[in-house]
């Protein structure tokens, strides 16, 4: 298995928010992390991206201990797409995407031909080339989210983490972002973990779904197997119907 998360626990001070999480992902898989607020999904991303030290457990990428790496080394393996909030308004799209090359740049931050090529490719693949010289403040929410995706692609890592990339976006932009993620995962063999609240988007775009509750993984399997009415009711304390469309993904709707 390419990415192994082994009995990982994380704490904020005295409070333990992840309790011995075990997950393994093959290269090129998209895993959706779903579950109620405060279930530990975002905490897991923070540990994987190195901004929170776990209190116990291990994370390995093809045998390499991710937790022992320096920020620079880790950023060559793991890229993060955060929510597009509080971005530096005066930066241009190209400037922001170029910062994805930080783990490869010298301390002066002058990009070389190899870096420019990676930035160009990331801009092209996210349809941002026409917007390259626009300032971030002039972009819509969906475009800003695409900039952060392009920045992560420019980082050229095998692992991509997304933290609620579709929150605040309208339907079209939600589908657009997730289609891009799916496409890159297939084409580049990216291993993707994404925190997502919309269960239907998770079912539609993820290969497997991990259902979190109270800092543990209740179930991890294909969407049809995890997203059952009983289990959703138990975790979210909300009764739902799960509809099955022929040859389609399960559809979760609120019960009457």
């Amino acid at each position: 298995m390419a990415l192994e998360i082994i009995h990982l626990s994380a704490c904020y001070g005295e409070r333990r928010v992840l309790h011995g999480v075990d997950l393994t992902l093959p290269r090129g898989e998209i895993l959706a992390l779903v579950g109620p607020n405060g279930a530990g999904k975002t905490t897991l991303l923070r540990v994987l991206s190195g901004t929170l030290r776990p209190c116990s457990g291990a994370v390995r990428w093809e045998g390499v201990d991710l937790l022992a790496l320096s920020p620079r080394e880790r950023a060559q393996l793991v890229a993060v797409v955060p929510q597009a909030r509080d971005l530096p308004a005066a930066f241009t799209v190209e400037q922001a995407v170029t910062l994805g090359r930080t783990p490869y740049l010298s301390w002066l931050g002058a990009p070389g031909p190899r870096d420019r090529q990676a930035v160009e490719r990331a801009l092209a693949e996210t349809d941002l080339l026409p917007l390259a010289s626009r300032r971030l403040a002039q972009l819509s929410g969906g475009e800003q989210q695409r900039v952060l995706l392009a920045r992560a692609l420019a980082q050229e890592t095998p692992i991509l983490l997304l933290d609620e990339p579709t929150t605040h976006l309208d339907l079209r932009h939600q589908a657009n972002i997730l289609r891009l993620v799916q496409q890159f995962s297939r084409e580049r063999g990216l291993t993707v973990l994404m925190v997502i609240h919309d269960l239907n988007l998770a079912a539609r775009f993820a290969d497997r779904v991990a259902l979190f509750d109270h800092g543990t993984v209740l179930a991890v399997d294909e969407p049809e197997a995890v997203l059952t009415a009983d289990r959703i009711a138990e975790v979210y304390h909300t009764s739902v119907n799960v509809l099955h469309i022929p040859q389609g993904h399960p559809v979760v709707v609120l019960a009457e």
């Binding site: 880790r74 793991v78 890229a79 002066l108």
Partner: peptide, 18 residues
């Protein structure tokens, strides 16, 4: 360059390798 990266906040700067 470090200041440019820091404009996205400490957490993202760290995730970008700084």
């Amino acid at each position: 360059h470090a200041l440019n990266v820091l404009q996205f906040g400490e957490e993202q700067a760290q995730q970008l390798g700084l």
